[in-house]
Design a protein around this nucleic acid. Structure first.
Length: 463
RNA sequence: GGCGGCGUGGCCGAGCGGUUAGGCAGGGGCCUGCAAAGCCCCGUACUCCGGUUCGAAUCCGGACGCCGCCUCCA
């Protein structure tokens, strides 16, 4: 049974399924006005891992994640750079998808754009006006949060207490500081859409509720995002669904932040590293390993030290792949558990890892178990139990692949000149000309190779 | 001010009542022509102060420190 922590109930619960065997999942996506940073990388990795694991376990997952392509930040950037909002959104959406591809996050089944859903949003807002749940101010339409009885459910506190904690608002026409913009009237030269209540653009909270319900339907299963979206974003999405009398997400999942020097990484703090920068100097798989080594709800510390640490751990896995000549699995194609059957130690490993992951995606325990299995496989092979060792090693790669981590021994290209050095070294070694062998090794090292001896002779790989 | 969370060995990071988490780094050994890789062994850690218990990192109370949300935010 697959279980997952649910924010509303504050406990781990069975994963709900409106249709047994099929899981509908919505993850709040990015606003495309800048390069994706490590925080975006974490939330996409976390939910990509979840999606992959649920798929591995036999569920048919429908995974939807939006692109917010109209927003104040986009407008401001377009103004600053003297370009159009469309151009800004397109540029950074392209950056987004290439970063996602680079870190191995599989494409959503649907990635709706806010600008494609404006008409539906207008319709929803009209119904709010009709029901007196929305009201007009000079700069737009607002949602009256007092009309939702259980407002504050996701925040975990009652409306009154939220209201008391709210800071000073710029807009004093709001009835409550908690009320939020459904629609912002267009200012000169801003992109806008027609609406019966006045030309303008939608507020952020309205798009996700409209798109998720449209694509996944009433009462869809799972709605996910970062902890910071819990309130007010998810609260407000939910409030609108309630006001529209539509059953909303049955289960809410939230992931922890990426921390830098014990502070949340965010654009507003300016302490972020873009994924693009990270990928320029790091194997993307190391970041995934770093992410799955801790629990998805915990904060993770990301620094050159922790990334380097993960890179070395990853090298240990790749070494295993090289030793056992393991297939490279994973990638864009999601792995299904039903395709594999294991015996002996591998079967036991499989059971244990599944038990950990089925219970609130406990990736750190699963990873620890898998690293134990790496040692075990090597030890078995050292003891000449080749068959058992190979089976266990294969199971390790299958389970890592299930989490989207491709263990890869990496066959690397080398030219004839390098090849000649390797051959010459093997020759020297076979004749016990050690000084010559060491000289040839030094030469290979100088060309950027790591040299290892094996029963089959000199093996090299990129340093 | 309200709500939530956290403080674990050199670092990262699990565990949440009794048994080695795991990784990285470090030390010793085996293997190796020497290495590398691999294997084996090693640190005996849980902010502090009380309490509950036969037994607490794990439960309760308090103190201190830190973080997050309440405003755009993954």
């Amino acid at each position: 049974m697959l279980r997952l922590y649910d924010t509303v109930h504050g406990e781990i619960r069975d994963l709900p399924m409106r249709d047994p065997g099929r899981l509908s999942m919505y993850v709040c996506g990015p606003t495309v006005y800048g390069l994706p940073h490590l925080g975006h990388g974490r939330f996409t990795l976390v939910w990509d891992v979840a999606r992959r694991w649920f798929t591995f376990r036999g569920l048919e997952v429908r995974f939807v994640s939006n692109i917010t392509d109209i927003d104040d930040k986009i407008i401001n950037l377009a103004l600053r750079e003297g370009t159009s909002e469309e151009a800004v959104a397109r540029t950074y959406e392209d950056e987004w998808w290439s970063a996602m591809a680079a870190i191995g996050v599989a494409r959503p089944d649907d990635s709706p754009h806010a600008t494609q859903y404006v008409a539906a949003m207008v319709e929803l807002i009209e119904s709010f006006l009709a029901d007196d749940v929305a009201y007009l101010t000079s700069d737009g339409l607002y949602f009256d949060t007092s009309r939702v009885a259980d407002y504050g459910l996701l925040a975990g506190q009652p409306l009154e207490s939220l209201r008391a904690g709210a800071r000073v608002e710029a807009n004093n026409e709001k009835r409550s500081p908690l009320d939020f913009a459904l629609w912002k009237f267009a200012k000169p030269n801003e992109p806008s859409w027609p609406a019966s209540f006045g030309e303008g653009r939608p507020g952020w909270h309205t798009e996700c509720v409209v798109m998720s319900l449209d694509l996944l339907g009433d009462g869809f299963d799972l709605h996910c995002g970062g902890f910071d979206l819990k309130f007010p974003h998810h609260e407000n999405e939910r409030a609108q669904a309630v006001a529209a009398h539509r059953p909303f997400a049955q289960h809410w999942g939230h992931n922890g932040f990426v921390m830098v020097d014990n502070e949340k990484m965010s654009k507003s703090l300016g302490n972020f590293t873009s994924l693009t920068d990270l990928l320029a100097r790091t194997d993307a798989r190391a970041y995934r390993l770093l992410v799955i080594r801790s629990h998805y709800r915990s904060p993770i510390e990301v620094s050159r030290v922790t990334i380097a640490d993960a890179e070395r751990a990853l090298a240990r896995l790749d070494t295993l792949a090289r030793r056992f000549d393991l297939p490279v699995l994973g990638g864009e194609k999601l792995v299904k558990g039903g395709d594999y059957h294991f015996a002996g130690e591998a079967a036991q490993l499989y059971e244990r890892v599944c038990a950990f992951l089925d219970e609130d995606l406990n990736t750190p325990l699963a990873v620890a178990e898998l690293f134990d299995a790496v040692s075990a496989a090597n030890a078995l092979a050292d003891a000449k139990h080749e068959g058992r060792a190979a089976e266990l090693a294969l199971c390790v790669t299958v389970l890592f692949a299930a989490l989207g981590l491709s263990v890869d021994g990496g066959v690397e290209e080398h030219d004839a000149e390098v090849r000649a050095l390797v051959v010459a070294r093997d020759q020297a070694r076979s004749e016990s000309r050690w000084a010559e062998a060491d000289r040839l090794r030094d030469e290979l090292v100088a060309r950027g190779w790591i040299v290892e001896d094996s029963p089959e002779g000199t093996r090299i790989r990129r340093a």
